[in-house]
Each structure stands twice: as C-alpha cells, then as structure tokens.
Nucleic acid binder design. Structure first.
Length: 207
DNA sequence: ATGACGATTTACT
DNA sequence: GTAAATCGTCATA
C-alpha cells in the first residue's frame, strides 16, 4: 500500500475544464483542530471558466471581497456562503489573476464517517430524527461542506501546504460522464455547456 | 438605504 | 412536481 500523496501545485495550474476531470477519484482531506481526519473520494465536479463564463462569480471580471480567492494562485480553496445557510467549496486553478475554479459537488465518504454523520445531522438540525444514509452524507455541494466541517474559515487555504484542507491523489475513474451544470438557470447559453463531470454510475453523485 | 438574488437542501402535494 | 427556509452580498439609488 503506497503512501498517500498530495496533489502537486503544478497539477492545479491546468484550466478548470481539465482540472474538473482530473480531480475525480482524488481524495479531499479535512483535518479538524483535534487532529481528526475526515475525507472522501471526489465523485462529482463542475468547471467555472472565469471572466467569460456567465455562471461564474468572476464573470466579466467581477472582483469583490467574497470572490477574491478566485484570483489567488492555483491550489487555493474558494469557500463561499450562499442561500443564507450553505457553504460551497471550490478549487482555484490557472495562474494568479485568472479566476477559474472547480466546484466540488459530491464525495464518497471515506475517513471519519461517524464524525461526518454527527456534523451533518447537527448542521441540518436533524438531531433526533432518522439518520442520513452514509452515501448521502456528501452527495451535494452543501452537504459535503457540512459533513467535513468546511466553512468560511477554510476559504483561501493554499492546499499544497495547508494543515487543515488538501487533496490527495486517488484512483483514476474508469468512466467519466459529463453534462450541463446545476442551479445556474439564469446563465443563458452557458447553462447548457456540459461542464459538470461525474464518475459514471456512482451512488454518491448529487440528484 | 434598499431590494433582488443565490454554483442548495428539505419537506410536502 | 412546487415551495419554504434564511441571510450575506452586490448593484442601484
């Protein structure tokens, strides 16, 4: 069994469309302040193509305090808060100043699954009710941030060097499927671009 | 100062 | 299938 290896800084320098596919099968790792390791295999991603992409937070060069991380160097995390209740996590790519990023949409839970159950039921105010299925802990962008305890304090982490959040190499998927991105209906023609990628047939993909 | 909106999730008809 | 929850952000005034 080989030692887990982090994704090298160079790997993040690719364009979002390529990195979105490259990240499938890799492992997202979160280390809590008490040292606990929570992780999952990345099974679904979306590419956001920066200034030309109507669905991107950086469309037309938009640069605000919220999306500042998109302009950081490749390998930086971009975490934002939306709908008044959910966090979403992105991986910034390309060189600094070029705001392309990949949204992580779903994981297959791997390490610290019991802790992930606790986080998720707490965050979604489900304590006392029927527990979630493990396969549904991270089957969506807002769910995986709950389960791995990823919030605004994890924004702008340089993942090749962070001690709290990073990505490790995993197994290359057999079969990658692609289709239109989700939740961006107001993006005009860009809403139809097939920039969402997932491992074909995987049970943890969002729905 | 104001208001429309959101890279979502959940519950309910 | 539809709608509610819930609030920070951003463009406009």
């Amino acid at each position: 069994m080989s030692t887990p290896r982090r994704l090298a800084p160079r790997a993040y320098a690719a364009g979002a469309e390529r990195l979105a596919q490259r990240l499938l099968g890799c492992i997202l790792v979160r280390i809590l302040s008490d040292g606990s390791r929570l992780s999952g295999v990345i099974v679904e991603t979306e590419a956001y193509l920066g200034v030309i992409d109507r669905a991107s937070h950086a469309f037309n060069g938009r640069r605000t305090p919220r999306n500042e991380s998109m302009y950081a160097r490749a390998g930086t995390s971009y975490v934002y808060f939306t709908y008044g209740m959910h966090h979403c996590m992105n991986v910034v790519c390309r060189r600094a100043g070029v705001p392309e990023a990949v949204l992580i949409r779903a994981l297959e839970p791997l390490d610290g699954i019991e802790r992930q159950h606790t986080h998720r039921s707490h965050a979604s105010r489900r304590r006392g009710r029927r527990p979630f299925e493990t396969r549904d802990l991270c089957s969506g962008p807002g769910k995986l941030t709950q389960s791995l305890a990823i919030d605004l304090s994890l924004d702008r982490q340089f993942m090749p060097e962070s001690d709290a959040l990073w990505i490790e190499l995993g197994r290359t998927p057999r079969d990658i499927e692609r289709g239109p991105r989700i939740g961006i209906d107001s993006a005009g023609a860009w809403a139809n671009e097939p920039l969402r990628f997932w491992i074909r047939g995987h049970p943890c993909v969002s729905r």
